[in-house]
């Protein structure tokens, strides 16, 4: 093993180790951090960026940790009694490791803005559902006035939730749909997404809202267009009958 700190062989070894560690770390990270199934078109953008981030973490983690652990081994004192080499810094290096992260950060800012615009875009043909959050239940209102405490929406549809809260702050989150938005008393907030997977999911309140925050969960059903129309109709009849019988 080379002992001098400026020996080129060090950097070749370190380089190889960094690459290897990056690959291992990247696979590991993506392994222990699996994202749930995706249920909206926007999810692919979020997931892609998340994976990209994991690889960035892998690279930087490998870079720092490999250099560190390698130093432990090569530069441990062992039997030597002298002090380390005397160098106080290197301006070129300092500038390099200021500028390179800066460039990375600018790139990620750029990607961040792009992807944000993608996932928040609000197309014209949206089905608007009004959402009201309260301690501790949800109320959804469809354009025809139908009300429901579970969320049923058609698949392959552009949706827009217009949300507010009646008491304290709540938050709208379906993991499969990725995007999250708070419901704030006195404000109207919204979230847009496009369903592309039929199935049953769960809408979870994601903002501490008091005792039953834990249980402020309601079923979400994404169904075919026909089923949705049928459901709406059925709800309308049920609610109509209710008002009639009063």
């Amino acid at each position: 093993m080379p002992k001098s700190s400026t020996d080129k062989r060090h950097f070749i070894i370190v380089g190889v180790l960094v690459v290897a560690t990056t690959v291992v770390m990247g696979l590991l990270l993506n392994g222990v951090l699996p994202l749930p199934e995706a249920g909206v078109t926007q999810a692919s953008t979020v997931d892609w960026l998340f994976r990209l981030h994991m690889w960035l973490i892998a690279i930087l983690f490998a870079l720092v940790v490999v250099l560190m652990v390698y130093s432990f081994y090569i530069f441990r004192r062992g039997k030597r009694t002298d002090d380390g080499e005397h160098f106080e810094g290197n301006t070129t290096l300092e500038i390099a490791w200021t500028v390179i992260p800066l460039v990375v950060v600018v790139i990620f800012t750029f990607i961040g803005i792009q992807t944000l615009n993608e996932i928040t875009a609000s197309p014209a043909d949206q089905l608007v559902v009004k959402v009201d959050g309260r301690q501790w239940s949800w109320l959804f209102e469809y354009p025809d006035g139908t009300q429901s405490d579970e969320l049923v929406v058609p698949v392959n549809t552009n949706l827009r939730m217009e949300m507010t809260a009646s008491d304290v702050i709540h938050s709208f989150w379906v993991p499969e749909w990725r995007i999250k938005q708070d419901l704030v008393p006195g404000l109207t907030t919204h979230v847009n997404f496009t369903t592309d997977l039929e199935g049953e999911f769960e809408l979870m309140c994601n903002q501490a809202c008091g005792r039953s925050h834990t249980d402020m969960v309601t079923p979400v059903r994404v169904v075919s267009e026909q089923e949705f129309t049928a459901w709406l109709h059925q709800q309308m009849v049920a609610q109509g009958r209710q008002t009639a019988s009063k």
Partner: peptide, 25 residues
């Protein structure tokens, strides 16, 4: 995101401090 830059400076400077030292643990 900008905060990452000065924080990174610290990490890399620490590595520079270790490199070529006589490390005890």
């Amino acid at each position: 995101l900008l905060v990452a830059v000065p924080t990174g400076v610290k990490f890399f400077s620490w590595l520079g401090t270790l490199w070529g030292g006589r490390l005890t643990f």
